[in-house]
Write a protein that binds this DNA or RNA. Structure first.
Lengths: 199, 199
DNA sequence: ATATAAAACGACCGGTCGTGCTTTTCAAGC
DNA sequence: GCTTGAAAAGCACGACCGGTCGTTTTATAT
């Protein structure tokens, strides 16, 4: 058999953990709840991980893998420049539905939870977030060198602002249940892009 | 005596609760931990509130009161227009230190926690966040009618984008520990303001 | 100084948490 | 068909959770 029974189960656990963590956060994700959802005993589930912290880290890794699949990789298939930036942005807005994460982006939830809680999970999250910012900055650089954006555009500043718009969208859409959130976010994105295009 | 002993204690509890909630979140803020911090018995503390949820709601209210004191009120003392907007922005960035909240803005932490958890605390938070966005929008409108900003500027859109920058700053400063976060946020703010000024 | 009301206490409830240790189930290789 | 090792279950643990209760201490008003 290509994949053992254990790996299958592990896979199912992490998928479910990702969905649950998006709703309850990494801390709110408890072994008992997760086991009940999977119709598994708590100890049977626990045996797959050395600790709760390891489960959290692996859940973040799973989220990152899915994120690459449904956001980064497809966006890199888009033409370099503005289209690629737009693809990154649009796919980011959709990605909680694509995975799926019923509770919104797990990274946003984890960011607020872990920003004051040192440990392996926090370290991993910081790493992943830095990678994501770097991915955006790289796309900006590509757009710049091919003349789509002005040479004076600061890729890191652009990445910061684009990421801020994403956070603003998440906040407005999920907490405030603002139906116009996507529209506002798109308007902000277009303004950001336009400013980076001309003077 | 003007204020009873009970009110004093209550006051001390809520101040400490606010600080703790900024680090641990509203859910992570436990009665036991809070009581231990205040050198109070858990039951003695609990007697001041009908339930944990009520404590959470009152903590949010306390946060809102402090926020008005250290952010909104002083900013409203600044001249209408761009200076007032800048004051709102700058004071927002400082307010976790002003209150103090060792763990960053309690509203940001609560937003991620509560966006999928229905209840009184969530309802109150949504209310407060809407008020905050409205406060920004009102300041934008004032700046607009006195000719500081273009007439075509959408106050709600401006508020959305300014708020997004704040969230981006909080993320970069607290989670990523990016020393340049404040600089990036200020640059984003100035760009937003400049775009709303001229065509 | 005393009566009364407010406030704080300590013990305890049922429940859930993460985490070990031991046993049973079960699928694969001979 | 039996063996064997992985996978899951069972069970128990200590800690802590929010919350209740009856009692004791402390503050307030007469």
């Amino acid at each position: 058999m290509a994949v053992s029974k254990g790996e299958q189960t592990r896979d199912a656990i992490l998928d479910r953990a990702l969905g649950l963590a998006s709703q309850l956060g990494l801390e709110g994700l408890t072994l008992g709840r997760l086991a009940a959802d999977l119709e598994l005993s708590k100890s049977g589930l626990f045996a797959h991980f050395g600790s709760k912290e390891e489960l959290q880290v692996e859940t973040l890794d799973r989220a990152a893998a899915r994120f690459t699949e449904v956001v980064v990789a497809p966006a890199l298939a888009a033409p370099r420049g503005a289209p690629r930036l737009r693809a990154l942005f649009e796919r980011w807005m959709q990605w909680p539905q694509l995975v799926p994460q019923p509770g919104g982006c797990v990274f946003v939830a984890a960011a607020a939870e872990l920003d004051d809680r040192p440990g392996a999970a926090r370290d991993r999250l910081v790493e992943l977030e830095r990678e994501w910012l770097a991915t955006i900055a790289t796309a900006v650089r590509a757009a710049r060198t091919q003349g789509d954006l002005r040479a004076a555009v600061d890729p890191e500043q652009f990445a910061f602002e684009l990421h801020a718009i994403m956070l603003g969208y998440h906040h407005a859409a999920r907490l405030l249940a603002d139906a116009g959130a996507a529209g506002r976010a798109r308007a902000a994105f277009e303004r950001l892009l336009a400013a980076a295009r001309r003077g």
